[in-house]
Design a protein around this nucleic acid. Structure first.
Lengths: 183, 183
DNA sequence: GGCCTTTCTGCAACTGGTTGCATAAACCCG
DNA sequence: CGGGTTTATGCAACCAGTTGCAGAAAGGCC
């Protein structure tokens, strides 16, 4: 639902082609909104049909790149959407379903899954902290920089939460196993 | 993706009909996995075809209720699934896209949206804390209770995070406005 | 008993996102 | 310069979840 607007934002930051967008989605915006290249191409086509973006003159490069830039109508639409009040999507986490399943069908191998999750969250947290140190440790705090920092902080907070939660969950599951005499 | 297993879990806790499941999803499991009644009916049908659940003899009540119970194959499948290692779904949050949009197109009405979100998260947090006080303040900590508590704690942690983040975000956005002379 | 409402079940169509595959241009290397 | 590789674009089918609507059985009301 926010893909078109994420694309408009990225293209406003800097006009570029589909594949470049895919690359930039993997970083920055992609921390909170992922998109495959197929989604991106499909959506770019639609945005062009809507008159929100236009293709720029094709420049040389690998393959046949088509860069896009945002038209005034697109910028206007982005402003409209950003100012709207939206219902937040409720949380949805498979791990919680699995924990409840564990509660009914007794001990399973769930701990291993949580351990691997823990590692992933720790990695991501380390990455975010590194970015924070590199990009936000010093320099003038403009509005834009502050907002980008805010988004990164959300990432840091969320990953910290999951690291904490995984540790706590492992604690509960392992203590249970120990209590049952499984060393 | 976890809907079938969420249903199996719920049906193992207590066999019941589609509409009852919908009601129970609104509470408990529904804090982390939502499903509409259409999804539930469709899925129950599929689970029956797979031989994981069976319909019980129809009992009286509103409409024509069909209660289901889990068969051994279903329990086995749930165990298998719970023990599997899954990739966690990456975070996806529209608000972050909107904050980045704000960063590019200058001040918008985004604060209002965040304020309404803040209220929602506070409400949910209060609800979760109330449930915690009611259900987990005392009593023997069995494995099942501990796991249910753990899931609830995840909810509390997440809602706390969002309350904190909304406050922080409002701080940034409002400070910016003030700096621009808009009182 | 007839009628309106509520509860429960379900179909059909749609949407956003994913997967698998195809094609074309540039580039790289022997 | 010709064949393999990489990069860029895209189609088609699919899957999970959502929306809108409809019919059937039970309950309540007059």
């Amino acid at each position: 639902m926010s893909l078109p607007h994420a694309l408009l934002t990225a293209l406003l930051e800097r006009p570029c082609s589909g594949s470049e967008l895919a690359g930039r989605f993997d970083r920055s915006i992609g921390f909170f909104w992922q998109a495959t290249h197929q989604q991106i191409y499909r959506e770019l086509k639609r945005l062009e049909e809507l008159g929100w973006i236009t293709a720029l003159a094709p420049e040389a490069g690998r393959g046949r790149k088509r860069a896009y830039e945002v038209r005034p109508a697109g910028r206007e639409e982005l402003r409209r959407w950003t100012g709207e009040v939206h219902e937040p999507k409720p949380l949805r986490d498979e791990l919680m379903v699995r924990l409840r399943a564990e509660a009914v069908i007794g001990p399973t191998d769930l701990v291993r899954d949580i351990e691997s999750r823990l590692a992933l969250h720790q990695d991501k947290l380390a990455l975010y902290r590194e970015i924070e140190g590199r990009d936000f440790a010093e320099g003038v705090p403009t509005r834009q920089r502050e907002l980008h920092h805010l988004v990164l902080q959300a990432g840091i907070m969320a990953e910290t939460l999951w690291v904490d939660f995984c540790r706590k969950a492992i604690g509960v599951l392992v203590a249970d196993d120990a209590a049952k005499g499984k060393p």
